[in-house]
């Protein structure tokens, strides 16, 4: 398991809600995820571009999406949802591992990518996480996924030395 984290915290982050205009001029609101978001998230993932799936998630087909969402939104997991009006257009999640650290994943629907929504969601999620006392966060990302790797570095993730197929990164909050 990943056990190398930066010594210093990455900084202070503001907790949601956060409202801003994205780079395409759309007003986006980021809120902490609630149980009532479930169906909007199912819809978002059901329409998700298969090319944007990563390491087997989100799963395809609605029943499997529902099962997966249930496992990643229960217990101590926390998340934020980016909304454009009534539509969920992004979702960032922290799921606890067995060592008290959290695994991160983030998804932005295709039409909303490249508009700074990912950065804003991660900052809001980190704000929420700091309020809940989360300190150590890790992720894995495919080596060829340059936009995601740039996003993670921008918000303060550092690479962990690894011989794995995937890049492993950690951040201390």
């Amino acid at each position: 398991m990943i056990d190398s984290y930066p010594d210093e915290p990455a900084g202070d982050f503001d907790a949601p809600p956060v409202e801003f205009d994205d780079d395409a001029g759309r007003t986006i609101e980021i809120r902490a995820s609630e149980e009532s978001d479930f169906d909007a998230l199912v819809e978002m993932y059901d329409d998700f571009d298969p090319a944007d799936r990563a390491q087997g998630i989100p799963p395809v087909r609605e029943n499997r999406i529902r099962d997966w969402l249930e496992t990643i939104t229960t217990g101590d997991a926390l998340g934020v949802v980016a909304w454009h009006g009534d539509a969920a257009v992004g979702h960032a999640i922290l799921v606890p591992d067995e060592e008290g650290a959290y695994e991160l994943a983030i998804f932005v629907t295709q039409d909303y990518q490249g508009a700074r929504i990912g950065t804003k969601m991660l900052e809001a999620l980190f704000g929420l996480a700091q309020d809940r006392g989360v300190e150590r966060v890790w992720l894995t990302v495919e080596r060829w996924n340059d936009p995601a790797i740039r996003l993670y570095h921008n918000v303060g993730f550092e690479d962990v030395d690894s011989e794995s197929f995937e890049v492993e990164m950690t951040i201390r909050l």
Partner: peptide, 9 residues
């Protein structure tokens, strides 16, 4: 599978 459900080799 990772806690997130990602498939890890």
């Amino acid at each position: 599978r990772s806690p997130m459900g990602k498939i890890q080799l």
